[in-house]
Design a binder for these strands. Structure first.
Length: 381
DNA sequence: CCTTGGTTGGGCTG
DNA sequence: CAGCCCAACCAAGG
């Protein structure tokens, strides 16, 4: 590109200066670089049909030779990029859009727009591991979490209708309930199961919770108790999580609902014993559900079992101050297992016709990981 | 064999 | 004897 030309740098998700090949390319040989960011309704209200101001807002008045932005595999951006390809050919603008290495990192930088490069983060982890004697390994380690990102990005991009049940060839077809009241109880922390309600409260208050907490509420909403469609929970997470990521969110809901990747539906996150294992005193529940603050720890995970005298002393009457369980756990979970068993049997007969189960193993994850050529970026440090 | 379960019962420690 | 850790078993689809 001859010097003296102008470049447009279109920031979408990756708002960062480090490891940003499109920004680097936009700056190279340009007389003027025009960075711009469009406030897109899609950011506020994820909706594939939402009106986008993306293209209408390209800065005018200046002749541009290059338009640079991060390539994005999410369907919303794929559709948008189609329009950009026609705009570019009319205007005679060169497009440069390398694959995204954006990482959503709410822990340190509270925002949604990926100020951290996954490749840079990978290098940081490598450096830290060199300096310590013992560390965990993939798949459960921090590095493992990066592998999952690459895996879900790869599968999501290669699977039509990845965010749907129907027409998604790796997704089990399961007759989920369409129960808006159960969904609302789950969303609004009114299920009567403190471990579940506390987690959903943290989601609404902080926009973030531990991933095993996410597993707990996803398991509860779908295959273990409420039998509500995983897409409904996916939408709530997508709207409320500050680190929401299309491929990872959908991938995990497919996983946790036993619709794909993982199928051992008898293996569950108990809404009572799972939290108790790590927090026997129930301090997490007390923090996010202050109404249960004075409930003795013997009852905090199952307050409906507390004698009335105990409830009165704790100033929390179940059914008045805090809801009774929205379902009877024993019969609800039994019903769920029955329905899943039937659905699985039916899916077996469908296999080969339309639905193909996907089995996950670590070698597939590593294969996806290698595609990202993280190793080439040691110079970033 | 598999990303991160639940339950039980034995054995150890204080 | 209480509290804790760990192994074994459970029930499973791809």
């Amino acid at each position: 590109m001859a010097s003296g030309s102008n470049s447009l740098m279109w920031f979408r998700k990756g708002l960062r200066l480090h490891d940003n090949p499109s920004l680097e390319y936009a700056a190279k040989g340009s007389k003027f670089l025009y960075p711009f960011f469009v406030i897109d309704p899609h950011y506020m209200e994820p909706d594939p049909t939402a009106f986008s101001r993306g293209l209408d807002s390209l800065p005018e008045g200046v002749e541009h030779r290059k338009l640079c932005f991060e390539y994005d595999t999410e369907p919303y951006y794929q559709a948008l990029d189609e329009k950009v390809k026609s705009y570019a050919s009319v205007a005679g603008v060169e497009i440069f859009s390398p694959v995204s290495h954006t990482l959503y990192n709410p822990a340190d930088i509270i925002q949604k727009f990926g100020c951290l490069s996954s490749r840079y983060f990978y290098q940081c982890i490598q450096e830290i591991q060199k300096s310590v004697k013992k560390h965990t390994s993939p798949p459960v380690s921090l590095l493992g979490q990066l592998l999952w990102r690459e895996f879900f990005y790869t599968v999501a991009f290669g699977t039509p209708n990845f965010d749907q049940m129907k027409g998604n060839r790796i997704c089990k077809q399961i007759p989920w309930k369409n129960d808006d009241e159960l969904l609302a109880a789950w969303t609004d922390s009114r299920t009567g199961f403190p471990w579940i309600d506390a987690i959903m409260m943290q989601l609404r208050k902080w926009g973030w919770m531990h991933h095993l907490a996410r597993h707990s509420v996803a398991c509860f909403l779908t295959r273990w108790d409420l039998f509500v469609h995983w897409k409904k929970g996916r939408d709530v997470f997508d709207r409320l999580l500050i680190d929401s990521d299309w491929a990872i969110n959908n991938g995990n809901w497919l996983w946790l609902s036993c619709s794909s990747f993982f199928y051992q539906y008898n293996r569950i996150y108990s809404s009572i014993s799972f939290g108790k294992k790590y927090d026997p005193a129930g301090n997490y529940i007390r923090h996010f559900l202050p109404v249960l603050k004075h409930m003795p720890k013997e009852y905090i995970y199952e307050p409906w079992t507390a004698p009335v005298s105990v409830q009165r002393k704790a100033r929390c009457t179940i059914g008045v101050d805090y809801p009774k369980p929205v379902v009877s756990h024993d019969s609800a979970s039994k019903e769920c297992r029955l329905r899943l068993g039937e659905a699985y049997a039916l899916n077996k007969t469908l296999n080969g016709l339309q639905n193909r189960g996907t089995h996950l193993n670590m070698s597939a994850v590593y294969a996806a990981f290698r595609l990202t050529v993280y190793e080439d970026f040691s110079s970033l440090l």
